[in-house]
Amino acid sequence: MLVSNLELVPGKRTTKHFGLVQGSTVRAKHAGRDLMAGLKNIFGGELKGYTELLQESRQEATDRMIQQAESLGANAVLNVRFSTSSVTQGAAELFVYGTAVVIE
């Protein structure tokens, strides 16, 4: 599965178009990480736990999008966009969407 945020793949022709596919996850952090984050809010610096958490969640959302594209019979997802929003305190939604296509 080719995933790209370009509108077309150089040197390849799009033969079929399936429309929008998407994937999302809502993840909350656990209390231990929250405590560390509270400390970091005093000292400043990177919140490594959060970086990892969001990275994992983004991967999961991408996997879900790829799954959806596969079930449609696509072999590529183009023009992929990521979006993050914090839904409530301590939870974030990661959302990925793109266009499922078949390329030669």
Binding site: L6, E7, P10, G11, A37, K40, N41, G44, G45, R58
Partner: peptide, 29 residues
């Protein structure tokens, strides 16, 4: 740029990304 220039050496593509979560300190806040 949205569209890459046509170049025969651009054969493979991959989505790449980097992320960071960073916090402000008490003094700056």
């Amino acid at each position: 740029e949205r569209l890459p220039p046509p170049d025969p050496k651009f054969k493979h593509s991959s989505l790449v990304g980097g992320s960071v979560v960073i916090s402000i300190d008490y003094f700056k806040r």
